[in-house]
Structure formats: C-alpha cells, structure tokens
C-alpha cells in the first residue's frame, strides 16, 4: 500500500470530517469488490448528517473509515483537520448491536470510555466511585435506565441494552458521534422515544453526528443533512439539507413537507436500484 502523502494544504478545523477521493476495495486484484467508489464528503462541525441507502451501499464503510477501524484503499480521511489515527477528535460510537461487555455491569460498561479516553482517564481510579459514578447515573436516568447500573447486560432487554450503549457512546462528551443504525432493532415506540432523546442531546451539546440508517423517517426527523447512497459500487448520489425547525416532534413526520421529503428520498433510492438491476 502506498504511504500517505504529506499534506501541503492545512485543513480548516471546521471541516470536522473530510473524505478526500476515498476508495475502498476488499479482496485482491482479481476478485476485488469495490465497497466504496471514489467519494469525497465534507461534514462541518456541529452538523447532523444521515447516510441512507440500501444495504451494501457503503454507508457503514464510510462510518468505519471515520471511526478509524477501516483503512481507505486510496485517498485521505481527515477528522478535525488531522489524518485519521492521529486521535484528534473525541469519538463516541453506537453500533447496530449493543456490544456491551458481558463481564461488566451496566454502570461499568457505560463508564468504559472514561477509563480509556483522555482527559477522563487521568484520574479514573480516584473518580470512578464519586464523580464518574454520578455522571453515569445521570446519563442512565436520561435514557430511562436510572437504577439499573448494577444489572448485567444479559439481565436487560434488547432495547434497554441499546439505551445503555447510547449512554456509553455519549458519556465522554464526544465531539464526533458515529451512529451505526443504533435504533434499527428497536420497536417503533422505543425508537421514537430515543430519537427525541437524541435530538435533545444534539441541540444541547451540538456534537457532529454521522448517522447510518435505512429508515428514511429517522433520517428526516433527526438529521440536518441527508446523503443518499447507492450500491455496487457504493457511492453518494444525493446530498440534501433538511429544512425543518428544531426541536422537531414526531408530529412533524406527518406534515406534507416531511412526507414529500421522505417520498423524494425513497424514489431516489428506488430509481437507483432499478438502474442497478438493469445493469446487473
């Protein structure tokens, strides 16, 4: 693999995420699969961006690139003006599955980032019983899990585990929040409840959020900008802002403008799929 080139142009710190002509392929030359065709994407500080599209369109790939768990085959990924891996941004991430550590109770699970991420980790052992404990408890209460700190993950329902996992993603005040379909496996009412919590949180702390989802309503309700992606090869085919005023309520999703937006997004995806079927 070629060494990353030294960067002549200094990056504006405001572009909290910048993908510059990034390509990702899996496998070797002969049977290489392009997960993400050459893509450039800029996300400003404090934006709430949703990536939507059918499965296999590379939306999770983009998330992994930004999270630093996957390396680009080609191109550069910058987070907070630095190349990925430099560790400039404080990242919080929630996954499709709760991915709680089964040997820790809910409190210690949520506390995990405070143990790893500076500056919280510095006096972890001194604060874990006092300041951090209160912090975790407050966070759990916010998502309706107050008093469940002593429980172990397996003693909680899937929805409750997912709430705890959101707490873990947020506990260290991340400046960049990566959400990989965290509401996908929940029932509708829990989902809408967590949307609201998520929105309030974003309004309050204004982290940059990158949300991967295939729920158009979710994207339109939460995001300030929606990127539609298409599969084979994965690429961004549409990029539009969401104009609705905040805070949005669930009622907004029944208004004509909202419905028009989701309809348009839906047609965009369906059209892309139809083209794809003709091609293949």
């Amino acid at each position: 693999m070629n060494a990353p080139l030294a960067h002549p142009k200094p990056r504006a710190v405001d572009n909290v995420i910048e993908l510059e002509k990034v390509r990702v392929t899996f496998g070797t030359a002969k049977n290489a699969v392009t997960a993400l065709a050459e893509t450039s994407l800029r996300i400003d500080k404090g934006e709430f961006v949703a990536l939507v599209g059918p499965s296999g369109c590379g939306k999770s790939t983009i998330l992994k690139l930004v999270a630093g768990t996957l390396n680009a085959t080609q191109g550069n990924v910058f987070v907070a003006g630095r190349e990925i891996g430099a560790g400039a941004a404080r990242i919080g991430m929630a996954f499709q599955n709760p991915t709680l550590l089964p040997w820790l109770n809910i409190r210690d699970n949520v506390m995990l980032p405070l143990k790893i991420v500076p500056p919280f980790k510095e006096r972890f052992s001194a604060k874990r019983k006092t300041e951090y404990r209160d912090r975790v408890e407050a966070s759990l209460t916010q998502v309706g899990l107050g008093g469940f700190g002593d429980k172990f993950p397996w003693q909680l329902s899937g929805g409750m585990q997912q709430r705890a996992s959101l707490c873990r993603a947020l506990i260290h005040d991340p400046t960049l929040l990566l959400l990989d379909e965290p509401f996908g496996a929940l029932d509708q009412f829990t989902r809408e409840e967590l949307w609201e919590i998520m929105q309030n949180l974003w309004i309050e702390k204004r982290p940059t959020v990158l949300l991967v989802t295939h729920d158009l309503k979710e994207a339109a309700y939460l995001a300030s900008r929606i990127c539609v992606m298409q599969a084979r090869p994965g690429r961004i085919v549409d990029d539009s802002t969401v104009p609705f005023a905040r805070p949005r309520t669930i009622d907004v999703s029944f208004e004509p403008d909202f419905v028009t937006l989701t309809q348009r997004l839906r047609q965009r995806i369906v059209a892309a799929r139809a083209v794809q079927e003709i091609v293949s």
């Binding site: 999270a67 630093g68 560790g87 990242i91 996954f95 599955n97 550590l101 995990l112 991420v117 990566l178």
Partner: peptide, 18 residues
C-alpha cells in the same frame, strides 16, 4: 474475542495493551 467488542475500544482510540 468478538471483533465488535474490539471495535468499541478502537473507536475510543484505545492502545493495544488497553
């Protein structure tokens, strides 16, 4: 060890030892 659990740590920029 589930790769997902390792990913949780990696996004937090944990060291290999951590």
């Amino acid at each position: 060890t589930e790769p997902e659990l390792q990913d949780v740590m990696k996004t937090l920029r944990a060291t290999k030892l951590e």
